[in-house]
Design a protein around this nucleic acid. Structure first.
Lengths: 142, 142
DNA sequence: ATAAATTAAATTGTGTACAATTTAATTGTA
DNA sequence: TACAATTAAATTGTACACAATTTAATTTAT
């Protein structure tokens, strides 16, 4: 890897970090309407798709550990969107299951979907390129 | 904006967020050697370049507000890398100035520069493309 | 069979991140 | 020139994010 390449690689972390934060900040007023934080929202996004999952697998999908997920899941359970229960055949494992109220929330989240895209003003081609590059990093990061 | 475009835009936030966190996690052992957190490190990166700056301008560069910066700057002052002092002509403004010890730290940070690039395994072309797309978002986010 | 090793969550402690508010200084305006 | 409005940091409160440790359950290897 030459000097130029080294320089640009080192300059990638900061815009990734800033971009991620700025977009999440844009989500905030929309998520406030649903009384969800961004972390709670991405958990719900997984739950709408998976319906049921354990903490370890949820963490692998979201790149979050139990230290982060445990309090978030407890909060979503308080809001009656999720149910937490120990796996019968292995009590170490905590199963998380979405409730009817949790699935109903998906309809209310449709607005977020519409409004979010308007804040990222990339063409379809650029968006796909960016998406692919990000997953190239995520899949190869050692 | 059509349905496809809308879908991909909405899928960008999560990999940005995950990517940013995973790369920062890679930084950690390297930064631990310098006894710096990632946030302290990016502040020092600006200081190595600017030498002197006030909190508002530092925040604009780093996309961070005083609520985040104040405690970080206090910690860097404790470590003798920075000096904090009120602007004589406008006492509301806090000037931050790098010390000799702070500038000396730059040499010790050279290893980080080398090691970081090896964890992002993108070609030079891909890195530049990603860099440009990220700044396109940062510069146009409403 | 049982002690050691492993695994899964939860807990603890530190450090952001940011909205909202507060404090203090400065500027604009009637 | 007072006094309202604005500005800059700091403070307060909430919510992650994650390393390290703990607790409890399960598996592995004698």
């Amino acid at each position: 890897m030459n000097e130029d390449n080294l320089k640009i690689s080192n300059q990638l972390c900061f815009p990734l970090y800033a971009c991620s934060k700025e977009i999440i900040k844009k989500y905030k007023p929309l998520l406030d309407n649903l009384d969800l934080t961004y972390t709670q929202y991405i958990v719900m996004m997984v739950m709408w798709e998976q319906q049921e999952i354990n903490v370890t697998n949820l963490g692998k999908i979201l790149y979050l550990d139990s230290g982060t997920l445990t309090p978030v899941l407890k909060k979503l359970e308080e809001k009656k969107y999720l149910l937490r229960s120990r796996n019968k055949s292995d009590e170490r494992i905590l199963n998380v299951k979405i409730t009817k109220k949790g699935n109903d929330l998906k309809n209310e989240a449709k607005d977020i979907y519409q409004h979010m895209s308007s804040c990222i003003s990339l063409s379809k081609e650029d968006s796909i390129t960016l998406y692919n590059l990000l997953y190239k990093i995520l899949n190869t990061i050692s």
